[in-house]
Design a protein around this nucleic acid. Structure first.
Lengths: 121, 121, 121, 121
DNA sequence: GTGGTCTAGACCACC
DNA sequence: GTGGTCTAGACCACT
């Protein structure tokens, strides 16, 4: 389900966060669906359960998943009050990247076509 | 010229790198223009010269500035052979951000207008 | 594993870079193999850990090794996207050396046989 | 006659050395021909005469030029006792470069054709 | 214990 | 005065 790249310089807990986020964004994990338990994922990836716990706690803090005691972690549905804050942050990052691409003389069309590809499925 | 945020979790040298990059991208610093000397910027920001050195060397390695002994650091002009690699990385980041914005039900038009604003000056 | 020549005018960190590069190129260090930790190598060579850090970070930036926090530095496998740039630089150096050897009336065969020796193992 | 690249990180005296060496190797400067005086070249390049002096002295030490008091510097003819030493050094550099190119999976033919181009004029 | 960041302070090469 | 190298020593994040 999740693959770790041992050659990646990012800490393991961060890789897990990103991978999990991508699964949710891709739709591979739907809202209110249970995600693998801390222990299960830890044994599958043969890493320390604390590392998984760390990743899950941050995902929860960022609103991607929620926890129910003694039951596990679940994918959080999209709620407007959280997403607006996230959107703003993403737009900031987007602006910086676009500015740099503009500085590097990138063709506007190359970016437009990428957007079409992603937003029009 | 550059401001540091001590509450920011990013290392100081990273903040300096980013700020300097933004000044170059914005056009506030033009090609072949001298940037503040290691010691000067260090004393202005009240941090150790080694930290500035660290930031400048990485900017140099990434092709944003170049150095001349006994003269100083200068803004590097854009050269195609380096930028292609950078563009690829930026496109990867762009893809991830756009996917997440799509997941959060962002309007395609909001993004298109941001692009127009940046690319059409 | 690595020997330093204090009479050498090159900086210590450069010597370490070159030596480590040679070990990798020779095949004495294989892909994904761990290299000595910053502190260990520093104490073995009786130099400051920062100097090793400096050498390792540049080797990392040049794609020869990669790092994992709390784990160590490892030899990076060869990836095409980075090597093409390196090859171009090496060909430039090669051209200058060959031109000078030609100027000094070197026999073409002496060079051809060196190439055979290295490339045919 | 000589062009300096202000964006080159090498010290100016070294750039002058290399450029002069290349002129000799190319045959643009023939044996026993007079090269520009220290003062003339300094004023042409608008740099400090000491820097030219530095370059010329090193070229003399390496056997590429010789000086005659109150007359100037001249291109040195090729003499076997000096060139053998130089050839050895060049062969060492050549070996290192070829080893690295081999490590990067370069085609032997690409190198062979470069040699043909240079040695067969 | 590992890499990563930072400080304080020193000396060298270049121009 | 400028960048470049190096030391000694400290503290943090990660596993």
């Amino acid at each position: 389900m999740i693959k770790l790249d041992m050659r990646d310089s990012r800490p393991i807990y961060e890789q897990i966060k990103e991978e999990m986020k991508k699964l949710i964004i891709k739709g591979a994990l739907k809202a209110d669906e249970k995600i693998p338990s801390v222990r299960l994922l830890a044994s599958e990836l043969s890493i320390n359960p604390n590392t998984i716990q760390h990743a899950y706690r941050e995902l929860e803090a960022e609103g991607y998943i929620y926890s129910r005691k003694a039951t596990g972690y679940f994918v959080a549905p999209i709620t407007d009050n959280v997403t607006n804050e996230k959107k703003e942050k993403l737009f900031e990052e987007l602006k910086d990247i676009l500015k740099e691409l503009n500085y590097l003389n990138t063709e506007k069309e190359d970016i437009a076509s990428l957007i079409d590809k992603i937003f029009d499925n």
